[in-house]
């Protein structure tokens, strides 16, 4: 019985454990996303490069999306938020929400002052 329950615990631990293969895959994806970011930046700078017009028009949006994806991958897999329990996800998520509000509020406020108050 005791052996059975220990086996059950070990099985549960295996289920929550992120494998080395997953860590390697995440590292490769992070590297590829960074290469895409820099590639997009270079494409936007150099006329005649394939995708130049698209990169010039959408560079900021693409960079925001790519960095958000990289951020999420590191937080969920390397920081183990995916497996470490709901409370920690709430603590981090709450802080991130406030941080995003701080950035948005300050940028909007300064933009408003620049456009309407000067």
């Amino acid at each position: 019985m005791a052996q059975h329950s220990m086996a059950a615990v070990a099985h549960a631990e295996d289920e929550f454990h992120i494998s080395t293969g997953t860590y390697v895959r995440i590292a490769v994806i992070l590297f590829a996303l960074t290469a895409l970011e820099v590639g997009g930046y270079e494409a936007a700078r150099r006329p005649g490069v394939p995708g130049h017009a698209f990169a010039q028009a959408w560079l900021t949006e693409v960079l925001i999306l790519l960095s958000a994806a990289k951020f999420a991958l590191v937080a969920f897999f390397y920081m183990h938020l995916k497996t470490d329990g709901r409370l920690l996800r709430w603590v981090f998520g709450f802080s991130l929400t406030i941080a995003a509000i701080v950035i948005l509020a300050l940028v909007v406020l300064m933009w408003y002052m620049l456009v309407y108050a000067t």
Partner: peptide
Amino acid sequence: GSECLFFASLIS
């Protein structure tokens, strides 16, 4: 979490 707010202020 508190560091997130700190860097959010610096980034903004």
